[in-house]
Amino acid sequence: MINSEENIIQKPKTPRSPQIKLHEQSLSRTMIFIVFGSLILITGYTLTHLDTAGVHVDEAFKGLAITLNQMFLQPNAGSDGVPLLLQALASTVMLSILTTIIGAVFGFLFAVLASKNLTNAYLGAGIRVAMAIVRAIPTIIWALIFSIVCGLGTTAAVLGLSFHSIAYLTKAYSESIEGIDKSTIESLKVTGAKFWVVVFQAIWPTIVASLVSWTFIRLEINFANAIAVGAAAGAGGIGYQLFVASGMSFDFHETGFIVYLVILVTFALEFIAVKIRQIYLNR
């Protein structure tokens, strides 16, 4: 067994000092404390004042269990049939890819113009503010707004999804660009290269891996948003089928089937993203 381990170091004989502090009051500690405290208080208040519309919560949970059981354990293609659902799924995937491409192209151009280390301060600040406003408006509202002008359909969905993508990718890309080492840019600038030459010869190769990562993250978001727009704006695709199955015909077996399809696609997208990122990182 273990013996007299306490006596290995002689305790130093220091005079009894007053209480030793372990840390000083720092702004960061106080801030964390305050933020967590307020969040908990707000949550407590909200949960105790939550309107449940007179629903018996325990019964509702029982109902939910039944629904989930139908969805996940007994999925089937329902009245729409597999071919129709697959077609709707394909069009939603296509929609998300298309809007990601638009978002990436415009996002990159705006990002270059908005990055602090590349352009003049006013243009940059202007773009950043505009993009912050565009980003603040949820995708679904963009889609609804455009559907008033262009009518309900693909164009409204494409524009609505693209707007948010552009704003999101502008921010993400320009953060990558701002992270570039100054010397990389300067070394080409001193050769007298033109602005866009510097962009495509120095900046692009340096950050291409991170651009690819962000673009695929956005693709996954766009897929989710495309479903949402299809459901809430009636813009078609698998989102609309999902909305009809779960909110109009209440066929939860079909809902489950659609959810499984969606999950399958997101897994596939994640897998492809990982593979392509590997290719770009290894080069």
């Binding site: 939550l50 519309a53 919560v57 909110g247 959810v259």
Partner: peptide, 25 residues
Amino acid sequence: ASFFRNIPLVAWSMILLFSFKQSDF
């Protein structure tokens, strides 16, 4: 976790609406 993450928000909303009706909850 990844299963939860990938179930569309639309699906959660609709099936919860079915059981919990139109409420904040």
